[in-house]
Nucleic acid binder design. Sequence first.
DNA 1: ATTTAATCGAGACGGTACGTCATGTCTTCGG
DNA 2: CCGAAGACATGACGTACCGTCTCGATTAAAT
Lengths: 192, 192, 192, 192
Amino acid sequence: MNERVHTGRRRNEEARRAVLDAALRLLADADGAPVGVDAIAREAGVGKQTLYRWWPSKGAVLLDALTGRAEQDVPARDSGSLREDLRAVVAATFAGAQAEPVGPALRTLVRESARDPHLAELMREFTGARRSALREVLARGRERGELAADCDLDLMVDQVYGVFWYRFLLGHAPLGEEEAVRLADSLVRQGG
Amino acid sequence: MNERVHTGRRRNEEARRAVLDAALRLLADADGAPVGVDAIAREAGVGKQTLYRWWPSKGAVLLDALTGRAEQDVPARDSGSLREDLRAVVAATFAGAQAEPVGPALRTLVRESARDPHLAELMREFTGARRSALREVLARGRERGELAADCDLDLMVDQVYGVFWYRFLLGHAPLGEEEAVRLADSLVRQGG
Amino acid sequence: MNERVHTGRRRNEEARRAVLDAALRLLADADGAPVGVDAIAREAGVGKQTLYRWWPSKGAVLLDALTGRAEQDVPARDSGSLREDLRAVVAATFAGAQAEPVGPALRTLVRESARDPHLAELMREFTGARRSALREVLARGRERGELAADCDLDLMVDQVYGVFWYRFLLGHAPLGEEEAVRLADSLVRQGG
Amino acid sequence: MNERVHTGRRRNEEARRAVLDAALRLLADADGAPVGVDAIAREAGVGKQTLYRWWPSKGAVLLDALTGRAEQDVPARDSGSLREDLRAVVAATFAGAQAEPVGPALRTLVRESARDPHLAELMREFTGARRSALREVLARGRERGELAADCDLDLMVDQVYGVFWYRFLLGHAPLGEEEAVRLADSLVRQGG
DNA sequence: ATTTAATCGAGACGGTACGTCATGTCTTCGG
DNA sequence: CCGAAGACATGACGTACCGTCTCGATTAAAT
């Protein structure tokens, strides 16, 4: 606990970091169990008011903790081949959710969002962004003729993220490299 | 509230029904918002202890309320054609979740299961049963040669339920007859 | 902490006692410093909700703790002599406020009542009762001719309690037997 | 809010006045209810630090607001007659506490001092000064033989201020000219 | 004339207490 | 023994206030 210094009347960036770090740590350690505001504040060495001053709800803190640190490193590069791109995106998505501390934190976050309407809304935005990124990849493939002109891109996107979340939250089946490839390929085949 | 009569020292079936009815009603009215134990007990005109005597947790009551009433009417008939069977199952799944009061109740139930480990376990069983029923349909199709011998049935199952839950919970896209057909057909095509 | 047992759907008398005991103990130990609700609850081994269920405010608990235990043992006997009775009442008042744990607790209570309008009202009733008891004594003396017919009994009462509270709270002068006698005698002389 | 001008590195007298004015206004408006530091600062259009730079605590501000404005106009003249002087002092004390805005402000101040040890100490000094002024009057009377040589002056002083504070804070009886005269006379008679 | 230093308004900060809420356990009492 | 009622311990929630601290601007005194 290295004695944070005050920054006067402007927001203390160190406090912000301390909060997000603490939140991410607790989120990861909890692995699904609820994370309390008091706990975050105590862990960060911060007054509760500081949380409520800068984030509209507990959920906002948690989401910020996850997105602000775990870079949205899903690439969405354009390799010229739909199969290639799709494999990359799906594999990155699967892998990102397995890594520490993102995985457990993400699980906790989703759990929390079930109770916290504010967080649910934030999550909706978050996932919406991911969805359109993936849709972009598919749209490029369709333009190149790798997919049928009449295929339902939205349904394909939802098949990817549907499988992902379903398995991620229930944990009844793996989310490895192999499954990513299989899923990507089956989508390409299905839409061809 | 029609003045239930005591049944002495044997379990009062009417009380059980009153609880499940009340739970389902609240579950549906809440449409996602949390449903408390006190609320169920009051709505049912029942003591809280009666709940905990017969159900191990709040979640169990909620799940019982849903499954005990909303018949698991997903058919899983065997028509001889995979495409036919799959369309039927998917469409029934989609339609079942739209109907009142099942839809809103189911949404609430899932939300609750995020916080309640006990309910989560019950939900796991519940969805597990659905999954194996669907897998059965697909396995029959594969035996008939309608799917490639090496295709990943588990992945196909999860594509169906993944899309279903993903759209059902986020509500960003429809879950109608048309989407059901499209999804079923694309899976048959992909696995052929 | 001897494992209190629940008493079912009726108020738990043991819990009530535990709360009042704890409150009195803390009140006395604090000697003027504020006593928190959490502290009382923790000390009593009781949930905070139990406090708010039975007492309308923190102040009500504190006052109850003082009056419910420390018997209002100011005698107000009738000895036939005003001087005698007055000396007794004043001395008892002074002595009562010195004794442990009443003294420190009373000081804390008054302090709290400055912030808590509800408690202030309760204190008003409490002191009002004391005032009328003393007024009774003086009225009897006046009927016996020990006081002038036109003397202001209310003013005399307030001289007693005024001096008492003033010295009790500021602590700038003693409140012993000697002062009690002197005050009583001077009042008799003044009203004669 | 007439745009105060900076005075550079010397204390800004206007700011001081603004604080005291604001404090007195809030103190009077509150009539017993707590007055917060933030409220004073906002009302005065002043930073909180400016308060803590010049006053050691909130209480000091409040007391200063009261004493710095409401002149200590209790006369303590020497008319040659104890009865006369005493009547004057007591009546002035009573009247001073009734006037706006001193009365309500004083009430709030005492309430605050119950929670604020620093303010309590300041109040002790404040009342101590009043006490010795009154004691002076009585001592002069005793030297002139208007009081018995062995009478307890401190007790007499406390009877005056005791009655005053008791009635002022509880408000159960009036503090008018008539009561002042009666109290003063009874003390002279009692000590004669 | 330039530097130094103390003022000012503003408001974020860590901390403590508050009163409300929901959960699951427990006990009474009537049927 | 069942069922209704509801008190109980626990612990999270979001709000309010306190006194401290730092900012960036401003202006008087020191150099």
